[in-house]
Design a protein around this nucleic acid. Structure first.
Lengths: 207, 207
DNA sequence: GCCGAAGGTGAGCGAGCGCTTAGCATGCCC
DNA sequence: GGGCATGCTAAGCGCTCGCTCACCTTCGGC
């Protein structure tokens, strides 16, 4: 974990790595706007307005509107990958590590839903170069989960017919939480995380 | 040119209910464009061009670009609901009906991926009235699957902690197929359907 | 052979888009 | 206190968007 980005409570401040302050405010505004209306339906005037600045101010900190999405996507994927790596390389057998990975990954997609929506659903709005960079990160995400599933199969903890497709299904299930999760709904991110960990363990035949 | 809704093989021609021919060609072109780039990134000139017509021709058959999306979404949701109803009201116990529902629902999302993408991921581009109409159809979709899950719990075939959330997870898993399924990939829609039916039966504790 | 309806086109309008530019306030170095 | 880099704004450029309008072609009915 980082140092300068932490609050007094020890929690990592989201977007703490983005400086200066004005650049961060613009980026946070962009995340909200992109999550609400989608990249293409969001205007640079809307982003600047949410950040309390004039439309031209955006271009002091970012070259284009696409660069904003790129930065958001990059930081978000790094965070997602970090969450999965921490779980995958933790203590315990494949069963514990898979449950940990799923519950923390789902908690992030539910708790930081606006960010996750942009990160997971606006990839196609990026140009070819930026998209290729992000796709490489997604391959690493896939590999991390597939590694745990493979471990579980090798150790006899899991009973899985098709490792590749089952891994895809597990990730798909977790990611789609960002599409339907409602912050005002009856369930907390923690509850969904725990429930999903249980469902995934059933999917791999570990319960 | 044939305008019958059914082919010689007895299969229902997609969009066969849309007439006249020019209106259908425009709608099919819109489905392709919306699926590829998203609603907001698609121009009416692009849609008309794909259909081999001038931009103005679109407005002879549809009042606005949004009406195109509305018609696509309505027909698609009707089809999805029809698929689930057929499975839910079929023969057999809850286990057979759930497996049937999941495999056919997934087959549709994979096999007709372009349509499914538009139907499932472009809802927010609709105006309030159209969105409300479609959301009512989604509630019926939810209810149909939840009904099967409830039946299975009541009969003792399933072992489920949270019927509501598990139903959401099942639908979420199926729907997200439209996001990642690749027509040129190694697996057919039938294979994914069968695999997913197995995964879902495990999720509800029926295997 | 004439007519109106239906289905199409080319040109273009008003609006809003992403982005640029000229210029203004502020704080820091000397 | 003058010079200048930094961060910002007001104004607006060039463009493309959704959509409209005046007009053209085709065709069945009589």
């Amino acid at each position: 974990m980082s140092t300068a980005e932490e609050t007094a409570a020890g929690e990592v401040e989201p977007w703490g790595e983005v400086t200066p302050d004005a650049a961060r405010r613009l980026l946070v505004a962009a995340v909200e706007a992109f999550a609400e209306r989608g990249y293409h339906a969001t205007t640079t005037r809307d982003i600047a307005g949410r950040a309390g600045m004039s439309p031209a101010a955006l271009y002091i900190h970012y070259k284009t509107k696409e660069e904003l999405l790129h930065r958001i996507s990059r930081i978000g994927h790094d965070k997602a990958l970090d969450i999965l790596r921490t779980a995958a390389r933790g203590e315990g057998g494949a069963k514990e590590r898979l449950a940990d990975a799923v519950s923390s990954f789902v908690r992030w997609h539910a708790g930081r839903r606006t960010t996750a929506r942009v990160v997971q659903y606006e990839l196609d709005a990026l140009g070819p170069e930026a998209r290729a960079e992000i796709l490489e990160l997604r391959r690493q995400v896939d590999a991390e989960v597939r590694g745990i599933v493979k471990d579980g199969v090798a150790s006899g903890e899991f009973d899985v017919l098709d490792v590749h497709a089952t891994t895809l299904a597990i990730l798909s299930l977790c990611i789609d939480v960002a599409r339907w999760f409602n912050v005002d709904g009856p369930r907390t991110p923690e509850e969904i995380g725990a429930l999903y960990a249980d469902l995934v363990l059933r999917m791999v035949g570990a319960e």
